[in-house]
Design a protein around this nucleic acid. Structure first.
Length: 271
DNA sequence: AGGGTGACCTGTCGGC
DNA sequence: TGCCGACAGGTCACCC
């Protein structure tokens, strides 16, 4: 479920409330994508200083070390003072004096990983190859265009790859390409400067709008306070195969790239 | 090196 | 009702 907007909305929904919390216990359910990387007791007594985001990872800075959380495809976090005992799909609980942070993840593609520091090998393995953050000033249109020129892969797959720019997943890749009027199959290196500049703006705009709408709730996404998002109602192409394009009325098409669905309008995105 | 494929895991939905 | 295949918001380890 979670692309950058959903992860950021999740972060915003509990970062302030958990700041200063002292860890009292850790409960693990079934294995997630990667092992925690330390004995659960190691975290006890440490304080959660702040919650940051890098790409689709949440970084909980502790008084010593940090905890990396990833929501995978089906993960969601909740943070509350009172919570029922862990259920079938609750695979990581961080009990603190201010409340319980719980990772619920039916498919278990998510992860909770401890790293001794941000420069540690564990952290570098997960974060080291990530591209630029699209919602910061470091996301520069000229540099973006230069990076596209180096890749022959289809632009949709370059966006999903996360090595050029992070956080753009399957929904927002299709949406951004629609907004920029670019066909998802175009080789990245063939995108001219004016079109790269438009795509750069479209990525920023679509992600910003999605954060403001609380993300996309397609099936079950909710933030750490239990709130769903509404961006899916604004989607121009995603999950709209066969429905009329909101701009020109032509039927939205679905195709498969890298085993993922891509949605586009053949009229509005001619090349 | 880069591109393509399969793998991880569970749930849901549509068709027969 | 049951069974079966397709598909789902992500990423990594492989192959050629």
């Amino acid at each position: 479920m979670p692309e950058l907007p959903e992860v950021e909305v999740t972060r915003l929904s509990f970062a302030t409330r958990i700041a200063g919390a002292k860890v009292q216990g850790v409960r693990l359910g079934l294995p997630l994508r990667w092992p925690l990387g330390c004995a659960p007791e190691v975290l006890i007594g440490r304080t959660v200083l702040q919650v940051r985001r890098r790409g689709k990872y949440l970084l909980l800075d502790l008084s010593e070390g940090l905890l990396l959380l990833h929501l995978g495809m089906s993960g969601s976090l909740s943070f509350a003072a009172q919570m029922a005992p862990g259920g079938k799909h609750d695979h990581f609980d961080l009990q603190t004096n201010l409340g319980l942070l719980r990772l619920h993840d039916p498919r278990r593609f998510g992860a909770a990983v401890y790293a001794g520091s941000q420069d540690s090998e564990e952290a570098h393995k997960l974060l080291g190859k990530l591209g630029v953050e699209p919602l910061t000033d470091t996301f520069d249109a000229r540099q973006f265009h230069a990076a596209l020129r180096l890749r022959s892969t289809a632009i949709k797959q370059v966006l999903l790859g996360g090595e050029v720019v992070v956080g753009v997943g399957n929904i927002y890749a299709s949406e951004a390409l629609f907004l920029a009027g670019i066909r998802p199959t175009v080789s990245a290196q063939n995108i001219s400067w004016p079109r790269a500049e438009r795509l750069h703006g479209a990525i920023k705009n679509v992600l910003t709008a999605a954060v403001q709408k609380g993300g996309s709730t397609l099936r079950d996404f909710s933030d750490a306070a239990g709130q769903g998002g509404y961006f899916q109602l604004d989607a121009m192409v995603y999950d709209r195969a066969g429905l009329p394009c909101r701009v020109c009325g032509a039927p939205i098409k679905r195709m498969v790239q890298g085993q993922r669905s891509t949605f586009y309008c053949a009229q509005c995105q001619k090349f």
